[in-house]
Structure formats: structure tokens, C-alpha cells
Design a protein around this nucleic acid. Structure first.
Lengths: 205, 205
DNA sequence: CCATTACGCTACGACGCGTAGCGAAACCAC
DNA sequence: GTGGTTTCGCTACGCGTCGTAGCGTAATGG
């Protein structure tokens, strides 16, 4: 999912990897300054120092380009061991909030999500590049909590999958809504309150 | 917040109210068929049977038009008394999910939210027309639960406001994420699971 | 050296945007 | 009625972006 058409030809002049990174960086820069609707591919090409045609040879359009540009922002998410399930969740939620606080993340992610409601291929690309990629955090956190004895190991795999999806919807949904719609900072205090409600709801079973 | 410039002139030809409703309906229809980015104001005007200039006399642009068109969709939300707090929440969450399942709601709402990240005036319009307008449901549900004795009355008004905001972020965020990002139906089973976690988290205080 | 592919550049038609100008229509005050 | 005022439908226009085609050049491998 990284980059455009990831099929390297055996012969001929190879594609410039530097151009890829320059284009994606220029896209994020343009997202910050212009937002989604005023972002033009010609402007991105100029910022990146490449020709507009080069951009069109690698990406089909605005949507695909922005998905790749935004996806890289989420790769820095980690799940450091903070000793308890509550602390682990607070940590990763706070990281998520920091990334979402950036204007390029908000503008880009929301816009491609809006487009994905009428474009199944785009939605699949988003899921593969961003959503499913980060669901690993939920799985890792659950596994770590089970080894600590904080959570009972789930026997039914289908039920476990449903729970993971529910947690992901609740965490990502609440943080996005807080940052984008309510437009107020998801700071430590808010994250603590949210984590407390979530964890109490999950463990009071 | 209803309609465009809500200052009726004392003299002169009055603005056609039928044109307003026709334009908003045409906007929703175009959102279903074309989505946000391919929606053009010329096309909307043709569908509504009005001139393009008439449209520009009432709305400043695509953003404001779609906000008003989408806001009407949420006005049908109600909070019928179902006997218990859990049932009340399940009912309103399910209504919310039904509205969000419509393609015009998903495409329109997500798009204007994306634009609002770079436009403070638009964000204010969204909050006034949609978000704050529906926060009444949370307040009504809490009040009803207090009279039932299911919830202890909150004494600190500031703490109460924070709790209402948190609940709203969790409910709206989770449903939106489920419908738009996960792209799976927020059916009765999912709503029951979600409500159970939310309610247990809130009442285990 | 030659085939192959990527690159930069220019130019082009197509299309939506947002506005200006016009005559006709609908309303109110007198 | 009559005049003043505002809206409406229509046409036309300049502007900017889109996405593509064509060309010569640069970079790789056989």
C-alpha cells in the first residue's frame, strides 16, 4: 500500500524514490495551508519540484494521493508498556489525539473518508493503509492485559473480533469527534475521563 | 440558522420559500448520486428548477448549502420514553444510526466537517445547525433518568457539562466511526453492545 | 549501442466557478 | 392604477483547475 503502483519494472529508468517522499510531504504541506478543497495537484507538483505529469503517472487522483500522504502520519503510533491496561490505553489514545490535532491529519482524513462513502475502492484503500494497520494496537494491548491477568482471555474468536471492532470504533470515534466536531483539545484530563468510562464499561462484565 | 439570509425585506418581491425547499432537496439528491466532490452548484440549480444565480443569492457556496441540506436530516431525532435509561439510549442511538446510514448524510456531513477544519465560520455554522441542536437529547435523557432514580443528580454544573460533552463525543463518534469508517451496519446487536459498555462505564462511578 | 522506461515541459480541450447585466415578475405603499 | 423595490430566470463571460497528449531528454539494463 506504500506508494502508487508498487510493481518495479525490471528494465528502463527506475522511478525516483525521492520524488515519492517529496510529493507526499508537499501534499501534507498543502493540506495545512490550503485544506482539502483548495488543494490542487498542480500546486503540489510545484511544491515537490516535479512535473504535474509525473504526479499523474503515480496516483490516479487527489483521493489516492491524500490517503497515502495521511497514512504515513499514523505510522508513528506505538504502544509502550506503562504497567497497566488503563495506562496503556491512556498513552495510545493521547498519541492518537496528538496526531489528529495536526491540521493536515484532520483535513486530509476527513476529506478522504467523505469521498469513500461513494467510492468502494477508496474505502478499501483507506482500510488497508490506515484502519486495519492500526488495529494491531488494540490487539497488542489486549494480549498484554491478558498476560497481566487484567482481562480474562476470550475463548470465542468471533466474539473477540466483535469486541475489538467495538473498542476501535469507540476509541477512534470519540477522539475524532472530540478533535474535529467539538474542536476542543483531547488533553490528558479528557483522555483520563474517557479511558475511565471505557475501561469500567468493558471490565464490569 | 434555517435557510440563508433570514432577514425578510419589508418591501419588494418576497423570496420563494418553495425554492428553498426545492434547492435543499435537490442538494441531498445530488449528494446521493454524485457525492461531495462531483456535486456542482449548476447541477443542483437545474435539479431544483431554479437559475444558478438564484442559488448564489442565497448561499455563499457549496459548504453552507450542504450544511443546511444535511441539518434538516437530523431534525427528526426524538427521545421517546422507553421505560429505562438503557432502552432510551438504545432507541436514540439506533435512530442516529439510521440517519447516518443514508448516503447523503454520510457524504455531506463528513465533507463539511473536513472543510470546517480550515474554516472557523463554517465550524460555527455546523455546531449551531447540527451539533448543539441535538445535544438536547443527551440533556433530556439525563433528566429523565434522574427522575427515575437511575442516575444521581449532578451537583457541580461544570462537571455536568463536561460529562454531557464526553457522552456526546462517545455516542456520536462511535456511531459515525462504525457507519463511515468501519462501513458496517450499526444494527440492534451492535447498539446493544455499545450501550451496555457506555452505561456500565458511566454508572460504575 | 540500443531498447525501455521515467522525467520535465508545453499545450490543449473540457468543465465548473462565481459574477455581471438584462428584462420580466411579484410584492407594497400611495 | 402607478411607481418603487426586490427577486427571478436567462445569457454570457473571464478565470482557474482538470486530466491528457506529445515531444525531447535522462537514466537504467542487456
Amino acid at each position: 500500500m506504500q506508494g502508487p503502483t508498487s510493481v518495479p519494472r525490471a528494465t528502463g529508468r527506475p522511478r525516483s524514490a525521492a520524488a515519492d517522499t517529496a510529493i507526499l510531504a508537499a501534499t501534507r504541506e498543502a493540506l495545512v495551508e490550503l485544506g482539502w478543497s483548495k488543494l490542487t495537484l498542480g500546486d503540489v507538483a510545484t511544491r515537490a519540484g516535479v512535473a504535474k505529469t509525473t504526479l499523474y503517472r503515480r496516483w490516479a487522483g487527489k483521493n489516492e494521493l491524500v490517503v497515502d500522504a495521511v497514512a504515513e502520519l499514523f505510522d508513528e503510533l506505538e504502544l509502550p508498556d506503562r504497567g497497566s491496561l488503563a495506562a496503556d490505553i491512556e498513552g495510545v489514545v493521547l498519541q492518537f489525539a496528538v496526531i489528529l490535532a495536526r491540521p493536515e491529519t484532520k483535513s486530509g482524513l476527513m476529506a478522504v473518508l467523505a469521498e469513500s462513502t461513494r467510492d468502494d475502492a477508496l474505502r478499501a484503500r483507506i482500510r488497508a493503509s490506515i484502519v486495519d494497520r492500526q488495529k494491531r494496537l488494540v490487539l497488542a494491548g489486549r494480549a498484554r492485559a491478558e498476560t497481566r491477568g487484567e482481562l480474562a482471555p476470550e475463548t470465542d474468536p468471533e466474539e473477540a473480533a466483535r469486541t475489538v471492532d467495538l473498542i476501535f470504533d469507540m476509541v477512534a470515534g470519540a477522539v475524532v469527534h472530540r478533535c474535529v466536531v467539538s474542536a476542543e483539545p483531547a488533553d490528558e484530563e479528557w483522555v483520563r475521563s474517557f479511558t475511565r468510562v471505557l475501561l469500567l464499561g468493558l471490565t464490569s462484565a
